[in-house]
């Protein structure tokens, strides 16, 4: 965020064009309108996740719904069927070169703004089995380490995600805004 504000103060000729960008950035960061704040707060109270992956960590995610003392802190459903109604992608398990086009297809169909959570070491960094990490395909917001992670760690990770959704900060949108910036001009 500091990078873009420094660039916008470079010359007076580009101030008008930069103002629209500043507004867009300010909306995402701090100075937002009241309506957008209410929208993102209500979106955070009931998340809509979509789970991908068949592995040891997938069983732990399915246990979050069931009769469990730790599941009293969570009210979401983790086995939605429709991708078009979902916000969040929860990835667990080994990622292959063969499975990646299907994951990207699912990611494009989801509602905006999009978030992503990586559960376990097999998807965060493919260190155990020397495979791909999900970081190379999709920008990730929250990491939950563990093999498999305990219920307390999962619940804590979802609380962090909830605070992020309430503020409206998603890594995918920041990367988009950074990509659209004009390149630096050489000094004459």
């Amino acid at each position: 965020m500091s990078k873009s504000s420094k660039k916008s103060n470079s010359s007076s000729m580009e101030k008008n064009e930069d103002l629209s960008q500043l507004e867009g950035i300010a909306q995402v960061a701090n100075g937002r309108s009241l309506f957008s704040k209410i929208k993102s707060w209500s979106r955070s109270q009931l998340l809509a996740p979509f789970t991908v992956g068949a592995g040891c960590c997938a069983r732990e995610i399915m246990r979050l719904e069931g009769p469990n003392p730790q599941s009293h802190f969570i009210r979401e459903r983790f086995n939605h069927e429709r991708v078009e109604y979902c916000d969040i992608l929860i990835v667990s398990g080994v990622i292959n070169e063969k499975l990646s086009p299907y994951i990207l297809r699912v990611y494009e169909k989801m509602m905006e703004p999009k978030y992503c959570v990586a559960v376990g070491t097999c998807s965060a960094t493919g260190a155990i089995f020397d495979t791909m990490a999900i970081d190379e395909l999709i920008p990730v917001d929250v990491y939950i380490p563990g093999c498999p992670p305990s219920m307390d760690a999962l619940v804590g990770g979802i609380e962090i995600l909830r605070s992020k959704v309430a503020k409206g900060e998603s890594r995918a949108e920041l990367l988009k805004l950074q990509a659209n910036q004009p390149p630096e001009e050489a000094s004459l």
């Binding site: 990730v140 990491y143 760690a153």
Partner: peptide, 14 residues
């Protein structure tokens, strides 16, 4: 040991 706050966002140092 057991601990409950191991998860974090991408901004942290891992």
């Amino acid at each position: 040991i057991s601990s409950s706050n191991t998860s974090g966002s991408y901004d942290q140092t891992w």
